[in-house]
């Protein structure tokens, strides 16, 4: 069926402005700015240093922050995209209009993405601007690529949450599933992999592990960032089992993109 961009944009625009009006964007941006500043200046205090030390340490600390915060925020942002409309009773009204389910879904995703990307750029970007006077161009590029990978991770979790919002029977189930997914991807997944690796003393599945890491967008994000940073690589347990040969940014980014497109495609298939 022909896709009408105008319909997608109308939905996207509403979703975006809704998030601006209810101060979601403002709140999330503030959270990002606050934590980024704290981490930039106190992140290295474990090493006995206070204040901005090096871009590599800063990014390493920011990666640890983003890996918890961004998936959670993205999942919360999208979990009620469709189920919320369905529960409110406005879904039938929307679908009786000359808009296809695909346009509605894409519009929702695009609008929510815009809100998320805006917050990430504003939040992390503010700190980037602040740091820029003490960074050289290479370091700035490193920081920019960190922000970019944060955006991609956010978009992949947003895509997952939109899938949840299509599948869930009601909002309560959707929010519960979102939190469960956050626990799974951010906390449990690595622990289980690490556990298996330790218990079997690396005998079992060692070759498979790098690929298993690609099955988690949070891990892809970590690998994308850590491999650029030689001084801190050793600080990050599981990422170090990742062979350099697979640490090709093209491959990693392709994996990340499939985490954006895959759940969204599945969501459409189910929504149809």
């Amino acid at each position: 069926m022909a896709i009408e961009t105008k319909q997608i944009l109308t939905i996207a625009q509403k979703e975006f402005w809704d998030r601006i009006r209810n101060r979601w964007v403002l709140a999330v941006t503030a959270i990002f700015i606050f934590f980024t500043f704290v981490i930039t200046y106190f992140g290295a205090s474990q090493q006995g240093v206070v204040g901005f030390s090096s871009i590599e340490l800063t990014i390493a600390s920011l990666v640890s922050l983003a890996i918890y915060l961004v998936p959670l925020i993205s999942l919360i942002l999208g979990y009620d995209a469709i189920v919320g409309e369905r529960e409110r009773g406005s879904l039938d009204l929307l679908l009786a209009l000359p808009i296809t389910r695909l346009e509605l879904l894409l519009g929702k995703y695009l609008g929510l993405s815009a809100a998320l990307v805006f917050s990430i750029i504003a939040g992390f970007g503010a700190v980037g601007v602040f740091l820029s006077y003490q960074l050289d161009l290479g370091a700035l590029a490193q920081y920019a690529s960190f922000v970019l990978s944060t955006i991609l991770m956010g978009l992949s979790f947003l895509s997952l949450s939109v899938l949840i919002s299509v599948l869930a029977a009601n909002k309560t189930i959707a929010s519960g599933t979102s939190i469960a997914l956050w626990f799974l991807f951010v906390l449990i997944y690595d622990l289980v992999l690490l556990g298996i690796l330790v218990v079997t003393e690396g005998q079992w599945g060692g070759d498979l592990f790098p690929f298993l890491l690609l099955l988690n967008p949070a891990d892809i994000f970590r690998i994308l960032n850590i491999f650029g940073l030689d001084q801190v690589k050793t600080l990050y347990g599981l990422a170090t089992v990742f062979p350099k040969s697979l640490a090709n940014p093209w491959l990693l980014n392709a994996a990340m993109f499939s985490w954006i497109i895959g759940p969204l495609g599945l969501a459409y298939w189910k929504f149809k």
């Binding site: 939905i11 929307l94 009786a96 209009l97």
Partner: peptide, 25 residues
Amino acid sequence: YLPENVVFYDHLTGIETLHFIGKLK
């Protein structure tokens, strides 16, 4: 189409609601 027990977006005003639906239509 007027659905049974129609529910709109609480935060939108009356005119904004019509604009949103009107644009889609």
